[in-house]
Design a protein around this nucleic acid. Sequence first.
DNA 1: CCGATATACGGAGGGTGCCTCCGCTTTTCA
DNA 2: TGAAAAGCGGAGGCACCCTCCGTATATCGG
Lengths: 199, 199
Amino acid sequence: MRKPRADAVRNRDRVLEAAKAVFSAGGAEASLEAVARAAGVGIGTLYRHFPTREALFEAVYRREVQELTDLAEQLKKEAQPIDALRHWMRSTVKFVATKKGMSAALALAADKNSELYSHSSDQLTRAVGGLLDRAIAAREIRSDVSLEDLLRALWGMYHMQDRPGWQASVLRLVDVFIDGLRIGPDRSRARPRSRKSRR
Amino acid sequence: MRKPRADAVRNRDRVLEAAKAVFSAGGAEASLEAVARAAGVGIGTLYRHFPTREALFEAVYRREVQELTDLAEQLKKEAQPIDALRHWMRSTVKFVATKKGMSAALALAADKNSELYSHSSDQLTRAVGGLLDRAIAAREIRSDVSLEDLLRALWGMYHMQDRPGWQASVLRLVDVFIDGLRIGPDRSRARPRSRKSRR
DNA sequence: CCGATATACGGAGGGTGCCTCCGCTTTTCA
DNA sequence: TGAAAAGCGGAGGCACCCTCCGTATATCGG
């Protein structure tokens, strides 16, 4: 099979870059013609590379997932299993916080394409698996919650941005969730950050 | 001021009903002209009542919130505070499960209109408030998690439908969350349903 | 009950974005 | 270097969006 043409590769990249920017700014319903314009390519080129809006969403989405995966791998070197877990979840929240309009687009893509969902889920599962397994092996957390469950919880949080205070709220939810995972009578309330009292 | 015209009221209702059906079947991007057709009114009539797609989403959304509120009020009569809370969260999951395509539309509406969000949030907050407060007053759960936090957690779950097994997963998450809320050394694992072992 | 008038109806039509198709250009390979 | 494969881009047909306004109907005072 031939080597892919250099211009094709370049254009594909440009479109992806433009799409990320345009969707971030204008949300998931932004015009694809605007994306093509921003990328400096014809609308036909965009459609050849990404036959549907969803395909484009998907491609951008895969990039995002890759970043999350890398982040997980890096955090796997944290010392205390349960703290590494908490740290990763917290970091994920902050990562998501930077995405604004993209999130709707990504959610849409994942919604309509279960292969994509399971692939990404696998990828993240593999990456974060060590964190969870270590904590379970160390008998620090309950063993009946799967990685999928954990990812779903995070997934949910992915959808609450754009409210004032959402980030603090989600961080609090992460703490509650981690506490819920803990095993045994040790219910120490010691946690990394000072916390506001209720409301 | 005059009494509103009977035909106007009737048409508004028809459109709302049709919108719920059409969005449920076809998702949030369904054509508004299809909604008007299904309602048996002209496109102009639809647009007079709901000037934008979002306005229509919003109206349907308010209905859904009302149902959730009613459900909460009804469950407030449950005996054990913490069980009532768990029951409501579990029931909400099931309620959401029946909505399918609607959820994307509803999420979109809430996303773009913060007044709507805060109003609905208030309404649910008021309705569920008793459940949480009773549990806190009884010292059964920690006191630094607000109603808003709890609603956000549910909100997140709202977005995970359409995956095989999502419902069981969410129910599991609810249990974890409730366990995380509990106060004191009583970490009894007794819970209403038998549970699968990890993956 | 009836006329006046406020209110509502519906769909034609201009505009925009979607997506396909294909003649032209560029790149690759022998 | 030339032929063929691969890619480019935008014209054009279509669906949907939304406004505008002539027509129809409900309400209300008399």
